[in-house]
Amino acid sequence: MPEALLRVNELRKDFVVGPMFRRKTVQAIRGVSFVLNKGETLGLVGESGCGKSTTGRAAIRLIEPSSGSIEYDGVDLASVGARDMRRLRQDLQIIFQDPYASLDPRMTVEQILTEPLGIQKIGTSAERRERVMDIIAEVGLQAAHAARYPHEFSGGQRQRIGIARSLILNPKMIVADEPVSALDVSVQAQIINLMQDVKAKHGMSYIFISHDLSVVKHICDRVAVMYLGEVVETASRDALYEEPLHPYTKALMSAIPGRRGAQKRITLKGDIPSPASPPRGCAFHTRCPSAMAICKTTPPQAIETGGRKVACHLYN
């Protein structure tokens, strides 16, 4: 039985948007629950605007969740005090999508990598420097790069610096928010390999947020599929790619180009509904090819079947 590292329960995040007197509430995530096991890579997939990134950030409280609990190491991250949270952040790191915006242009690589140790007050300056040089080598950069500024590097190299920054505090888990989607395909493979190498060495867990199902299949152990702020299906990678259960997952899978033994492509009609006014019943019923009468009125409960979870009336 795998040991849980992070247990997210009924997490919600509402954003209040719009000008005064015409304020609307956008429900970015609407009761998301999942478990991240130790040493595991959990994929979080879904189309743009489904709340993947919000979920990833709320899980390490970079965004304050509106309600719900995040159980980590015996504490509820959602209710821990600010000072304790800052200390806990050593364990919970994040890698960003845009390697151009994620590094301060006014700091050298060495300053960028020393900063986490300074903030968490770890080591003497000699120890910090040694640690920085180690990590620079570990992510495949050279010692001479330490004195350079971010703009002197390519996208792939910047992403290596971003990974180095997230690694330097020896975190227990890293949220990777589309870490390769801004990179060339050849560089993507290098960065994915690097992420797998450092995980093999340090044994941390990843929450890997992506819309690229091929990448997710390559790196993830389990996958949670999100639609309009909800997790509709959670399963092991093999089970999900062999036999997707939820109609939305099926549609996603059929859209992977060049898939072996591909069945007919399922085309979803219409757009993703606005998260400001999600549909009643099952959020997916407006676009679901197998929608039934009950789907319009009652939201489906997630049920467990054979080690996987699916929220669809077809399986009740």
Partner: peptide, 17 residues
């Protein structure tokens, strides 16, 4: 709104810092 600011919060920095 840039990621490096968010990254710094993720490292445990205070708003003042």
């Amino acid at each position: 709104e840039l990621s490096y600011v968010e990254a710094c919060f993720a490292l445990g920095a205070t708003r003042f810092y």
